[in-house]
Design a binder for these strands. Structure first.
Lengths: 341, 341
DNA sequence: CTGAAAGCGCTTACAG
DNA sequence: CTGAAAGCGCTTACAG
């Protein structure tokens, strides 16, 4: 069917091994025959069969991206698309291909990963999330597969390759930012406390409050799926009160956006009545009005670094589970206002 | 390394061919030995090597998703993530894997596809966009590869498998919707006229106006990259005029969102001064205020159908290039208002 | 510097 | 109903 190494060899009048070696630019082959063989390859439009090569090399030159189990809305988060994009870009440079593992349930996702791993379809995986009691992450760990996590692992932190921001510090910085604007009544609102990022940012929030001698009020922390009715009720209870929070640290732009709409609906103005600071600096941050002050997490570096490190690992150039922590940066827009009173 | 068919064969006391046949549930193998072999497979945790199987079957059981060349913002469009997700879901059901082809330039993307196609890494491709003079689509066509397009092809329409909405009709329906609300001054605003969807929707817009005896005013059609300054200038010229449009058909939710913000900035209210109807019914439509009336294009069916049809094609169960056209549906929210005057 | 041969993990005629 | 053998398209010791 397609043109193979044999066809090239025959036409060039050499052995297949010679063709193979010129593909790899082996030093043992003379420049002269290399040149000849390369010419024929171009003429014939030869493209090596990666499956065959993988079979003998026991590798696949592909990296699997593990998406979180979808629960609808969260999945529309542009963060994942940007990560896919960034990973893809770096993989292209390194001549790796990228595959996607996803599932509607954890079982389905796991099955998909098992197939890719054991079926020889991926050399390693990049998990785009980190959460508590996740079967997939456990599986990857137990099977000692090559993988890296975006975000801090819940367990075995010292044995796992991961790339992350210092989300605790980021949470602290976000909180300090509004404290610096004279806010004292500061809430923390997030979507799912099982996610590591969310929990870390919360922890930073708490640290900042404590350091500023502001009492931590548990009713000021809301961690519910942000589409639920319970969520709306708790929000209402919080913001319809006379003494409502004047600032909110939102765990990401989507939460911030939804909150911003909610506040408008109940007649509160952002930033006049309530300031909002959030994370990720996604397209949402710019698109919404008022534009969100948001902490940029450098998705481009997150994605390129995770590929770099994972590939080093896969290719055996590195055997130690490093962590790469990237800096963050507050992007000031219009959703925060100094409180003077 | 990993456990192979040989290990299973030895332990079960049969030939490798017998193991292979029980994997495929061949009718020629007795239930008794099948049972025995299956037991051993489970015991050993055997997982077939897909690369080896692909090598002999000359297939890969994977489908490549082709993402458009990124130009920043557009790439944050949740449409693509939802498509990836949907395709992935259907592929899982069919035991196909999904790979991603993307690139920063058309050349890079093409190289990535060539590698996957000729390198035996994908049996077919799903192109998530359709635009004018696209090298990638041309390449797929010339090489007679298996592929399907989301959206109407620019060329060879009758020879290409594709899944789409009737975007012309959708454009007409959107326009008629605002005409039905007594609007006469209706603009059409889009991002990139080279995209087929955009062009089709425009054409439907024009048909609807003509049918309603409304003159088509070329200054009412803006097709610029929506981040450019030229875009802002044209928008300003259009909406700062006394006789500005009272309704806009926006080519998608992102355009609508950006427009909505622009209008607020210059002091026009949506929907009181200007009604907006858009397409895709993405997360943006719900998130923005006022929530957008948007045309749902059934991304879930778009993605499942394209996989169904492409797989039929790949597996030779279908050889005719069908088109599947899915219905659309107006989701009414708060961005359109009847004009009474 | 180059080639013949074995082998990666499968599948599939071909025998029996 | 089952097995021995060839072969998918590569790579890599091993000879020479």
């Amino acid at each position: 069917m397609a043109i193979t190494i044999k066809d090239v060899a025959k036409k060039a009048g050499v052995a297949t091994s010679t063709v193979s070696r010129t593909i790899q630019d082996h030093s043992s082959i003379s420049e002269k025959t290399k040149k000849k063989v390369r010419l024929i390859m171009k003429e014939l439009g030869y493209q090596p069969n990666l499956a065959a090569r993988g079979l003998v090399n026991q590798n696949t030159q592909t990296i699997g991206i593990v998406l979180p189990v979808s629960d609808g809305l969260v999945f529309q988060n542009p963060f994942f698309l940007e990560m896919i994009r960034g990973i893809s870009k770096t993989c292209n440079e390194k001549k790796y291909m990228v595959a996607i593992a996803s599932g509607t349930t954890e079982e389905e996702l796991l099955e998909s990963i098992r197939m890719m791993a054991k079926g020889g379809r991926a050399d390693g995986f990049i998990v785009l999330y980190s959460k508590k009691e996740d079967q997939v992450i456990d599986y990857l760990y137990q099977e000692k597969l090559n993988y890296a996590i975006i975000g801090k692992p819940y367990q075995h932190e010292n044995e796992i390759l991961y790339v992350d921001n210092d989300n605790q510090l980021a949470g602290k910085d976000a909180t300090n930012y509004v404290i610096g604007l004279n806010h004292q009544k500061i809430a923390y609102i997030c979507n799912d406390m099982d996610e590591m990022v969310t929990a870390e940012r919360l922890s930073g929030y708490q640290q900042a409050l404590t350091a500023a001698n502001i009492a931590i009020d548990p009713t000021y922390v809301i961690a519910e799926a942000f589409k639920g009715t319970e969520y709306k009720q708790r929000l209402a209870a919080l913001f319809l009160a006379e003494e409502h929070p004047t600032a909110v640290v939102a765990s990401d732009d989507i939460v911030a956006m939804s909150l911003s709409n909610f506040l408008k609906d109940i007649g509160l103005s952002v930033p006049n009545d309530v300031s909002i600071i959030s994370f990720n600096n996604s397209i949402f941050a710019e698109m919404i009005q008022p534009a969100l002050t948001s902490i940029d997490v450098h998705i481009d570096y997150l994605s390129s670094q995770v590929v770099e490190k994972l590939v080093e690992f896969i290719e055996g150039r590195q055997t130690i589970a490093m962590k790469v922590i990237l800096p963050h940066k507050i992007i000031e827009r219009d959703s925060c206002k100094s409180r003077t009173e």
